[in-house]
Design a protein around this nucleic acid. Structure first.
Lengths: 220, 220
DNA sequence: GTTTCATTCAAGAGATCCATTGACTAGCGG
DNA sequence: CCGCTAGTCAATGGATCTCTTGAATGAAAC
C-alpha cells in the first residue's frame, strides 16, 4: 500500500472491501446487520465482544464504506450501506462453503447435528405458501421481523417460543426460519416444536437469502 | 482464531475466503487467473513482483482453497478452483466500486482519461452481434483467447495490434474487449484504432463478465 | 551425473492487525 | 451544573502479514 505504481494502488483499493470482511468478528457483524440496523451495544452482545472492541471493528467497516451509522439521541445505529454488501457477504460465504477446508466440521461443532431436522428449500416453501397449507414462523428477535420478513410469516422470537406455543394453530405444519444458514434459532425452534408434536421443518437459509431471491416479503 | 467458542471459530473460517482476497497482489492474481490458468513466472510478471513473493501469495490462495495447481514437467500451473471464485472477485469489485472512497480517482490515475473513448454495454454488443454489423476484437494474450472468448471474436493481442491492422476488414466497426473493467488493453486498442480511422469502441467490461452473463462464448 | 530452470522454503525486518485496558466525549435527565 | 449512559479514543503487547534475500528442491536437459 505504498508508492508502488498506479495499478498496485488501484488493486489495493479494490482489496479494501475484502479486508473489511477479513475477520471473523466483522463477518459476524455484517451477518447481523444484514437483518437490519443495530446499536453498538446490541452488536457487541451478539458477537460476544466488549463494546470497545466492537466499536473499533465498526469503525473499520465504516472506513471501508461497507456500513453507515446514524446517531439517535445517545445511541448510534449501524447498518449496511447497500444491498451489495449483503451480496458480498453471501457470496463470500458460498465461496468458503465450497472451498475452505474444515468448514463443515466447524459448522457441525457449532450447529450440532442437523440430520434429524427436516429442511426445506426456498422453492419448496414458495409453492407451499401459494397452496396455503403451511405456517411460516419467524424466530428472530422482534426488531428483525419488523425490519422485514417473509410475507405471511408470524413472529415468535426464539426466546419466547415455549411460552407462546398457543399462537400456533393446533397441528399446523410449521416451517421456521431465522437469519441464515449458520443461525441456530430455527434449528432450536424445530427441536422444540417437534417435541410438542408439531410436524416442523426449517428453511434451508434465512430471510436475507429469501429477499435476495426476490421472493415475496413484507417490509415496513 | 484461538479457542474462543464454536461460533467464533465458524465465522473465522467463513472469513478465510475474504482474507485470501484481502491483499492487492492476490486480487491481481485472481483477476488474471479468471482468464485461465497460468504458471508462477507468468503470474509474477503480470503483477510486477518477484517469483518468490508471487509463489508465497499463491500458496496462501492455495491454502484457502480458492485456487488449485497442477504440475506439468518443470512448470506449475495455477487456476481458480471454481466459478464461484470468479463470482466472489467480481462481487468484491462491485462492492469496492460502490463504497470504497477514492477508488474512482485511483482508477483514473491508472487507466487515464476514458471519457474520449466510446463504450458499449454487453447488451448493446449482443444485439449488434446478432445483426452481424460489428467486428469483435479480443486483445488479450493469445493463451487467454484460446481458453475462451466471445463467440465470433477475432484475436489480436494488444502487443501485435499495430502490425496486424491488416487482419481487420477495412472500415469495419470494431468493438475491443479484454480482461475486465480495470484492464487497459481495450482502451489502448481503441486509441490505436481510432488513430487509424476505424470507428472503434470498447466493451464496458471483459470476457469473464460476458461469460458470467451467460452470453454466447466459444470454449476449447 | 551435472547443469539448468521453475518453483518452493526459511529466516528476518517492518508494518499492520487485534483484544484489552483505562481515559475521554457527547447527549440526556435531573 | 452533576451524574449517567452509550460510544469512542489512545496506548499497549502479542500475533499475523508482507516483502526481501538466499538457499534448497524437483524435474528435465545435457
Amino acid at each position: 500500500m505504498a508508492d508502488h505504481g498506479a495499478k498496485a494502488a488501484l488493486y489495493d483499493a479494490l482489496a479494501e472491501s475484502a479486508k473489511a470482511l477479513a475477520n471473523g468478528r466483522r463477518a459476524e457483524l455484517v451477518d447481523v446487520l444484514a437483518q437490519g440496523e443495530r446499536s453498538v451495544e446490541e452488536l457487541a452482545d451478539e458477537i460476544d465482544q466488549t463494546v470497545a472492541n466492537t466499536s473499533q471493528h465498526l469503525q473499520r467497516l465504516l472506513r471501508s464504506g461497507l456500513v453507515e451509522s446514524r446517531r439517535e439521541g445517545t445511541r448510534i445505529y449501524y447498518s449496511l450501506s447497500s444491498p451489495v454488501v449483503g451480496d458480498l457477504w453471501r457470496t463470500m460465504r458460498r465461496a468458503a462453503q465450497e472451498h475452505v477446508a474444515g468448514l463443515e466440521q466447524l459448522a457441525a461443532d457449532y450447529l450440532g447435528d442437523r440430520s434429524t431436522l427436516r429442511t426445506i428449500t426456498r422453492d419448496d416453501l414458495r409453492t407451499r405458501l401459494r397452496d396455503g397449507d403451511v405456517v411460516v414462523l419467524d424466530v428472530r428477535p422482534e426488531a428483525e421481523y419488523a425490519a422485514g420478513h417473509i410475507r405471511g410469516a408470524i413472529s415468535i422470537p426464539i426466546a419466547h417460543l415455549k411460552s407462546r406455543l398457543g399462537d400456533i394453530p393446533d397441528g399446523a405444519d410449521v416451517v421456521a426460519y431465522c437469519r441464515g444458514p449458520y443461525c441456530i434459532y430455527a434449528d432450536e425452534a424445530v427441536r422444540v416444536l417437534k417435541k410438542k408434536g408439531f410436524p416442523a421443518a426449517r428453511l434451508e437459509d434465512g430471510f436475507p437469502e429469501w429477499a435476495e431471491a426476490r421472493l415475496p416479503v413484507t417490509r415496513p
